[in-house]
Design a protein around this nucleic acid. Structure first.
Lengths: 214, 214
DNA sequence: CGTACTTTTGAATCGCATCAAATCTGGTGG
DNA sequence: CCACCAGATTTGATGCGATTCAAAAGTACG
């Protein structure tokens, strides 16, 4: 029942003795992974699906704090005695659960592990800052170009789960994204292939005579 | 020359032997704190002002990776042999510089410190996720309400550096913010005071008869 | 071959950015 | 104390870009 195949990133991150303590779990859409006020017992790592953290606003409306498609749901709950929000599966979701007590102990005692954990958090911080910067841009065009420039390899960005999902990540409607991509392609600013987007290589300035760009 | 007053957050975070190694520094607008390709020697903590991390895009245009008004500029450079971006002071800025080698060593050897560092990163991750979620909202109204609900204490949010700065953080124009605040105040959804915004307390449902909310 | 989902295009509308300008504010110097 | 300036705050008018609603075309899958 307990045997799980860990994704490579988790396998290298976690010390060996923790591997066998990891438990796979499956949640159906609208299931709750944990509830506000409960004591954290596991760290959740989303393998597939989508989970949100939600709190109840002052007028009773739900406030989304976070949305995770891949990775840890609540690193921050590592040292907390009770949850301050609910975790909700908004699609069918697969996660890996790591016993939180053992994890915290390992972090205290195994400084190599702590170091890797810090690196993981550093990466997460960088990713999030890029994402914030992208979302601060007002036009879909700018967000798309920023995405390809920052998340892509050398101007080449692999579309993961489809354009509709991507639209959600860019916080725009899928219609707007489709139109913008079409426009960028027509103006030859990007090229589109099967599952990827690419910044068009401008002809080098050597080929132009001075002043051709007013 | 070296004596600096550390902000409380840094003082509690850093182990004592690091305190005296911290150096204050001042940068004028458009100064660079560090350059791409250089080896990181210090960790930068912004005390006042504003710093951006920038990379050069494929077409030579600057791409902003991060914007920091308060806190560490590049935790992620902790374990990296050279910078992958420039740090640019976009206003006159005060920072505290911490020698990076000593810092990294301390993190390896002092597990208490490592633990605090992890907590600090956890906090940062949470903050950033909230910020992303906020920027994903399409209307200024929603962003403002989300801000008060999540950053405020009990529905009460203290405006830090003025509304114009706040507008920048919400990634909207100051005009839009002013108008939205005025509208929210008129509709009695929020109250405004000197330096704070507050969610209006709705009359409790006790005062209503059942079914008043269809 | 039908069903569900993604991709695409069209048209109407709305919110925000933008540009402009007026008012208010605190601080400075005469 | 007043005149004056720089910056923040506010209100107005206009246009653009994205949302929204609608619908068609393409694609995967059983």
């Amino acid at each position: 029942m307990k045997s799980v195949v860990l994704p490579p990133s988790l396998k290298t991150l976690l010390p060996a003795q923790l591997h066998e303590l990891c438990i796979g779990a499956y949640y159906k859409k609208n299931d709750r992974l944990f509830l506000t006020g409960k004591m954290p017992e596991s760290m959740f790592y989303v393998v597939a699906g989508e989970v949100t953290l939600e709190r109840t606003g002052l007028q009773g409306e739900p406030v989304v704090l976070q949305r995770t498609r891949q990775g840890f749901v609540s690193e921050a709950s590592l040292k907390v005695s009770k949850y301050h929000c609910d975790a909700l599966a908004i699609t069918d979701t697969n996660v890996i659960k790591i016993p939180i007590k053992v994890l915290a102990d390992a972090l205290d005692k195994d400084s190599e592990f702590a170091s890797r954990w810090i690196s993981m958090l550093n990466l997460e911080v960088r990713r999030l800052r890029l994402h914030c910067e992208r979302l601060s841009m007002k036009s879909v065009r700018d967000r798309v170009l920023h995405l390809i420039n920052t998340e892509g390899q050398d101007g080449n960005y692999a579309i993961g789960t489809g354009l509709k999902t991507l639209a959600g990540e860019l916080a725009v409607t899928h219609e707007a994204l489709y139109r913008t991509l079409a426009a960028l392609e027509k103006s030859e600013e990007i090229e589109r292939g099967d599952g990827f987007l690419m910044i068009s290589k401008k002809p080098t300035d050597q080929t132009r005579t001075a002043g051709s760009t007013p």
